[in-house]
């Protein structure tokens, strides 16, 4: 009990503000704006991150640097029950996993392709170690947990994951529905392959992608949704293991190789 008291004394300000933010934003719920091209979605969590950020030492100065760091140590604790929930959902769906077969499991490794495409880009844009956290995965919830856990809440790697997580939450669904249209028009992929691919590890992005595909290929729409959903669930289950054992080691290695070369290139070109 004395321990809890000392915890409360240390964290009360950060804690009370977080309670107030959560209660207000959870009662508002998810915001969506139709911007013509599609719908921009802002989940309470993303909104809470933005509001919390604005209260920090850089802008509204409600919190100083020390309190801001305390927020970071609570992130990991708040993530823990959430990861338990993800684990339970995965376990509950384990039998479905066996049904969907090897094609879907192999396809999960296709997610790794993004590393080779996005890491060089991130380095060219001037990101440093942030690029490791940003580029090793699609940066959904389980990845957020993983990076925070491995590198710590204040590490540049975690900031990279967080940045892409937030941007992805806001623009992800719009981008998926547009991009799926474009890729489908190339005509090189089978509708079922595209359906599987739309399960990238985010429920909302999957629905946007698979939903759009369903309208392009109405004769496959049911199968597309089933495959997309299964692949999405699978990414949720395998993401944390692929991330730990494959994706992060590959990204870190590639970073060590590419960073010095691209740094040299950037200096020569005089890019800021």
């Amino acid at each position: 009990m004395t321990f809890i008291k000392s915890v409360v004394r240390k964290y009360w300000k950060v804690y009370v503000v977080a309670v107030v933010i959560s209660i207000i934003l959870d009662s508002i719920g998810t915001l969506s704006f139709n911007i013509g091209l599609g719908t921009l979605t802002i989940l309470p969590m993303v909104f809470a991150t933005i509001v919390g950020g604005l209260l920090g030492p850089d802008t509204l100065k409600l919190f100083d640097l020390k309190e801001s760091k305390l927020g970071g140590s609570l992130v990991l604790v708040a993530l823990a029950p959430f990861m338990a929930k993800m684990g339970v959902s995965a376990g509950a769906n384990l039998s479905k996993l066996v049904e969907v077969g090897p094609a879907l499991i192999l396809q999960e490794f296709g997610n790794l392709a993004t590393i080779v495409i996005s890491l060089p880009l991130a380095l060219l844009l001037g990101l440093k170690r942030e690029s490791i956290g940003a580029c090793y995965s699609i940066n959904r919830d389980s990845n957020l947990g993983l990076t925070t856990d491995i590198y710590g809440p204040d590490a540049p790697e975690t900031k990279g994951t967080f940045a892409v997580y937030i941007v992805g939450s806001v623009i992800g669904t719009i981008f998926m529905s547009l991009f799926v249209n474009i890729v489908a028009s190339w005509g090189i992929f089978h509708p079922l392959a595209l359906g599987m691919a739309s399960g990238i590890g985010s429920g909302s992005m999957m629905s946007a992608g698979a939903g759009t595909l369903g309208t392009i290929y109405p004769e496959f729409s049911d199968q597309i949704l089933v495959l997309g959903g299964a692949s999405d669930m699978l990414t949720g289950i395998t993401g944390i293991y692929i991330g730990t054992f494959i994706a992060l080691p590959i990204t870190t290695k590639l970073y060590k190789i590419l960073e010095p070369k691209l740094e040299h290139f950037r200096k020569k070109k005089g890019v800021a």
Partner: peptide, 17 residues
């Protein structure tokens, strides 16, 4: 669970806005 998580994360990111 994630709204509270977002708030903590935001407070933590506040120093890097």
């Amino acid at each position: 669970p994630t709204t509270a998580l977002g708030a903590f994360a935001g407070i933590s990111l506040g120093k890097d806005i």
